[in-house]
């Protein structure tokens, strides 16, 4: 006699704003299919208002997060790696449901964990690598340090975990906060990642994740006057010119990379794209 089959409890995939998991205020969702074309789940379809709420949450979190010591931010990013490692199996399973083979899914999850570790180490080192003491020709002590740009809107690529981690980590490690529009066809892993972020001592609002239509959300974020920078990595090519134009409205810093290889050494580019250089002068003399 066999046991009666236990019915699985499914997860509702919601948004991640200000450390909480609200549904879209619009009450909309869209169907996400697994690799075999079967129904997998409904993802929230975020609205303009959700995007604005996310920007508010990111702005509110900016002062606190950018004011943390680099050491503390490094500890928290490393904690994210620890939490992700603990859910390794869950992420491998999700990537496989989305169509990845076992080896590929495992490699992607492992690389994503290691990427958090890589960026965790940069928290208290970037300043030593890109900052400088400037030998000016006068009796002045003069130094330059990188400081976070502010709120960054990130249009995430379709690489559901490694690509996503690779665009979020470099933004927040330096003290920025962000609003991320997850991959439109593969949004669910982003929300599962939000569960990792929510349990890693990362303050609410540092990372906010929206799922929905990129063509609907990206223009609002690119035009939003309280967003300081935009990462167009996952923006559809036909939208990019208009997004860049919208971003010019308050001179957002725009990152528009092409042909990203998520398995390669990430370099410094994604961090330096979202920092400002501050130079301080002070006289020297008795």
């Amino acid at each position: 006699m066999s046991e009666p089959t236990r019915l699985a409890v499914r997860k509702t995939y919601k948004l991640f704003i200000g450390g909480a998991f609200p549904r879209s205020e619009s009450g909309r969702s869209y169907v996400v299919h697994d690799a075999k074309g079967a129904f997998w789940a409904n993802a929230s379809q975020a609205s303009r208002k959700d995007a604005r709420d996310a920007v508010s949450a990111a702005r509110k979190a900016f002062g606190g997060w950018s004011g943390r010591t680099p050491y503390n931010r490094g500890q928290i990013l490393y904690r994210i790696a620890e939490m992700l490692e603990g859910r390794r199996g869950q992420f491998i399973e999700e990537l496989r449901t989305a169509g990845a083979g076992k080896a590929a899914a495992t490699a992607e999850v492992d690389a994503a964990i290691d990427r958090w570790v890589w960026y965790a180490g940069w928290a208290d080192k970037l300043g030593a690598v890109v900052g400088s003491a400037n030998p000016v020709a006068g009796p002045f002590f003069n130094f330059s340090t990188p400081e976070p740009t502010g709120v960054v809107a990130v249009i995430a690529p379709d690489s559901p975990l490694l690509g996503l981690v690779s665009v979020i980590a470099p933004v927040i490690v330096t003290g920025n906060t962000c609003v991320v529009v997850a991959s439109e066809p593969a949004p669910l892993t982003a929300i599962t990642l939000a569960e990792v972020l929510a349990t890693s001592d990362l303050p609410g609002g540092v990372v906010n994740i929206l799922t929905g239509r990129r063509a609907e959300l990206a223009p609002w974020l690119a035009a939003h006057m309280d967003v300081n920078a935009v990462d167009l990595t996952g923006a559809p090519a036909d939208l990019v010119p208009s997004l860049e134009e919208a971003a010019a409205g308050n001179l957002k810093r725009v990152l528009r990379p092409e042909g990203e290889d998520w398995t390669a050494d990430p370099g410094l580019g994604r961090m330096t794209a979202f920092v400002e250089t501050k130079t301080v002068w002070h006289p020297v003399g008795v």
Binding site: Y71, G74, G121
Partner: peptide, 8 residues
């Protein structure tokens, strides 16, 4: 913690 981050 600091030097761990330098290793890579």
């Amino acid at each position: 913690f600091y030097y761990a981050g330098w290793a890579d």
